[in-house]
């Protein structure tokens, strides 16, 4: 029963995170794809950091920053929001940072692949900047959006280290799938552990199949 709660929580976390990431990541990816600013390099590296950083390092810093003594913790407390660690909101913040490169990078690649030409054409046909973005850039970058959504969602589902550091193990609030699995193994409950592990394995394979299965078809068309 509690495992189903963990599955539901995980899906809710992944969905919330993915929506937020698409909203934040799209303008960021657009900027990274088109800027000639010297900040492009450092910012691109910063976005990619979660790819190489152990999640526990990320989680540790988040715990410090979001906690009662941390700068963000002070801010959230003064705003009357309390502190975020060991809450669902805290998990969302951690997940957004943790999965950021998985959303920004496919989008950035898709925007870069567009080139200037379709946007120039749209401009000569009377489309302003915002119009060009929504009527040309977004539809042409659709494969990038699909990949970003799938990867962002799946990567958040598979999150463990960050959750362990800032989420803990509160059923219904922070006890996500990977943590539940860890608990079962700790308690030597291998049967439910198998169910969860096999479920995750199947899910991950299907996600990757969806991503990789699409790509060759796109190329061919």
């Amino acid at each position: 029963m509690s495992d189903w709660l963990a599955v539901w929580l995980t899906l809710r976390l992944a969905a919330t995170t993915t929506v937020l990431l698409l909203l934040l990541g799209t303008p960021l990816a657009w900027w990274l794809a088109r800027t000639r600013s010297p900040l492009k390099g450092p910012l691109g590296a910063l976005v990619a950091l979660p790819l190489v950083l152990p999640p526990t390092v990320l989680g540790f810093y988040l715990l410090v920053a979001l906690g009662p003594g941390g700068p963000i913790g002070e801010l959230t407390r003064s705003l009357g929001l309390g502190v975020l660690p060991f809450t669902f909101a805290g998990l969302v913040v951690g997940s957004v940072i943790y999965s950021l490169p998985f959303v920004v990078q496919p989008l950035q690649a898709a925007f870069e692949a567009l080139g200037e030409r379709p946007l120039e054409v749209a401009a000569t046909l009377g489309a302003g900047a915002l119009d060009r973005f929504f009527s040309v850039a977004v539809p042409l970058a659709r494969p990038g959006f699909v990949a970003a959504t799938i990867l962002g969602f799946a990567h958040t589902v598979g999150e463990f280290g960050v959750v362990l550091m800032i989420g803990g193990n509160i059923p219904g609030a922070t006890r996500v799938l990977s943590v539940a699995l860890y608990d079962h193994v700790e308690a030597l409950e291998y049967a439910p552990a198998h169910w969860l592990a096999a479920g995750m394995l199947a899910f991950s394979f299907l996600v990757l199949l969806a991503v990789y299965g699409r790509l060759p078809m796109r190329r061919a068309s």
Partner: peptide
């Protein structure tokens, strides 16, 4: 360009 009345 989008405010110039020229086709390209």
């Amino acid at each position: 360009p989008h405010k110039r009345a020229c086709g390209y």
